[in-house]
Structures are given as structure tokens and as C-alpha cells.
Computed example of a mutant assay.
Amino acid sequence: MARVKRSYVDGTYGQLHYRIAQPEKPSSLPPLYCLHQSPKCGLEFETLMGVIGNERVVVAPDYPGYGQSDKPPEEHLATVPAYAEACWQVADALGHDTIALFGNHTGSKVATEMAGTRPGHVGNIAMVSAALLSDEERAFFADYFTPIPLDEAGTRFSTMWQRIVERRGPGTSLEMLAQSMMMNLLGGEEYEWGHAAAFSFAEPFEEALKTLPNRITILNPADDLTDCTRRAIPLMRNGQVIECPEWGYNFMDVWPEEVAALLKSHL
């Protein structure tokens, strides 16, 4: 397992935190940037990074307001384009000109925005799920992810934990669930800004799937987006959806070697 290190670079709203793993010998493969879901952070890739980092440089930034990165001063500044810009700021600081991308849920949208804003500087793209939602589905998820006010009964935290446990994937340990909960808490009072940013990026994401020249591979595990992810199949000009019915939430922690091998064959 490659060692995963942590550091900071300066971003638009303060410091940007990132994780990085790299092989002992230089690699000809472009650095792989891992882009997290909401309301998590780069920590969700750490186990996987230890495997991938044996063969190539792999970086997992925290978006502004998540993990250990400083937050924007106002919610309207927390957008998918802002998250993409922050990830490019990390890449620029590290001297990474051309990169590959792996996005998870919200990170899928960040990946397409990164590719669209810097054509020619992104190679292949892989993503977990594609939130191509109907109006009804979008309204449901927007309501589901409405921030829960703090109260002395701890309703926000008990609801978070209940949802995490209900959605645990095959093979997920209690320790993995606790880490998922901890990442949620790092978002503070702004923990749902990322979901709102993702929901408002529906049309640009669909257009990107239709027009980006990059090869796009979408992993489709058994999660809340399984059915709508298949809507991407007729849209992509250069891509495929790979069904992963045996995988659920936390699959990158449960099967990191298998995920790394799949990504290696497509990135």
C-alpha cells in the first residue's frame, strides 16, 4: 500500500486540503484526481488511494467547506464550477497539467466541469453514478437533503446515522459507517451546500455527457441512483455504463483492489 499524505494549497476562499499518494518510481500515467460526493471529503478515497498510489500519482482534494478545506463565505458561492476551480487550483499548485478524473456522485458533475473548462488537459474520466433526475426525483432529493436544524435531542445526528446504516453496502463495517458519519460532521452547518450545488447543475451535466470528447466510464453500483444512471447510456458520445450490482455504498473501502483494477483498465 502506498502511503497517503496530506497537505494544503491556497485557494479562492482560504486553504484547500488534499490527500496525495504516489509510487516510489516515476509513472508515465497521468495523475488521477478523485472527486468526492456530498457531504463527504477526500477521505472517502483514502483506502483506494493506497492501492492506486502504487502505480500512479493519485490526489483527492476536499472541496471548499468540506473536510479540512476553508468554506466560502456564502452559500451561493458553493457551486459545482467553484468546486472544479478549487480542484484545478490544487492541480496547478502541484504542477499537474494533464490529469485523469474519478468522480463520485457530486464528484461526477465536478469531473465534467473540470474537463469542460480546460479542454485538452483532462484524459479519461470515470465516475460513480450519474444523477440524471426527473423533476419529481430532483424535488424528492432536495427535500430529503434539506438541512436538519440543530436541537438538544440531536435529531440531525440520529437521522444522519440512521440513513448511513440503512444504506450500508455489502461488507461495510461499523468502523466504515462511523467514518462516513465523521465526514458528514466536518461539513458543519454548511454540510448540505454540496447537495444543493449538485442539484442545480443538472442541465450542464447532461450537456457535458452529450458533448465532451473524453472517454467516460460510469460505474453503476446498487445505490439510490442506480436506475437514473442508466439514462446516461444513450447520451454519451464516447462512453459506457458498467453495471456493478454487487457493490453498494462504501464499496471503495470494501473492495479497493477490485475497484483499482477496474479503474486501471479504463483510466
Rank of each mutant, 00 (worst) to 15 (best):
H121V: 01
L212S: 03
R215P: 05
I125K: 00
E24Y: 08
E24D: 15
E258D: 09
E246L: 13
P245L: 09
E166F: 04
M182L: 13
V122A: 07
R6N: 09
A198I: 00
T229V: 02
K109T: 06
I164D: 11
R237M: 07
P221I: 10
L43C: 01
L174T: 15
M181V: 00
E75Y: 12
N184T: 08
P245I: 01
S173E: 09
G169N: 12
G95P: 07
V241Y: 00
D62M: 05
L263F: 04
L133P: 01
F140Q: 09
R156P: 09
G123R: 01
V80P: 10
Y8D: 12
G123I: 09
G67P: 00
R118F: 01
K71Q: 13
L225M: 05
F201P: 04
G95K: 06
M1E: 13
D143T: 15
E207I: 08
P204C: 05
L219R: 00
Y8Q: 13
A222V: 11
G42L: 04
K109F: 07
G95H: 10
E137F: 05
Y249S: 12
T117D: 09
P119D: 05
G67N: 02
E207D: 15
H105F: 03
Q179G: 03
H105N: 01
T217G: 08
A178M: 14
E152I: 12
Q162N: 14
L43Q: 10
V57E: 03
P61I: 05
S200A: 15
L133V: 12
K109Q: 15
P39A: 11
Y18W: 01
F45L: 01
E189R: 08
L29P: 10
Q162K: 15
V259T: 00
R19P: 06
V4T: 07
R163M: 11
I148V: 13
N104S: 13
M127K: 02
A261P: 07
A139V: 13
L35V: 10
L101V: 02
L132A: 04
L16C: 01
T172K: 03
P64W: 03
R138K: 14
G187H: 04
S158Q: 15
A139P: 07
A178P: 11
I164H: 06
G169V: 00
A222T: 14
L132D: 11
